[in-house]
Amino acid sequence: MADRSRAARSGQSKSPLPAGRRGPAKLPDLDRLIHERIRLGIVSALAANEPLSFADLKRLLEATDGNLSVHARKLEEAGYIACVKRFEGRVPRTEFRLTRMGRDALTRYLSHLDALVRWARKGS
């Protein structure tokens, strides 16, 4: 949650666009929580297919255990993904699902990217 409020604060203070080229309409700020590459990968993968296990995500995103675990925890803390840990026999299995909040965040993020592209096409 701390990340999100920090993201919102930094988003307000720092627009990625040059002052003279902001255009008439204010561009939306990107959700920095899922802007990071691995986190964006986790959310995108789960939007296409869920549940995915930790091992599946690791293979799909070519991430290390530590890296994936840190980013997944951030998304989980923000309520974007849900994590279920269970045992299959004696083997522990961690599965992730995208929450409604996470799906909405990805949809919003994609709209923001789309708006950014349209704005840049007009500006360039």
Partner: peptide
């Protein structure tokens, strides 16, 4: 970024 999202979704799909 849009390409990355699309590619990841396709591979996950």
């Amino acid at each position: 970024s849009i390409r990355f999202i699309r590619g990841t979704m396709e591979r996950a799909g």
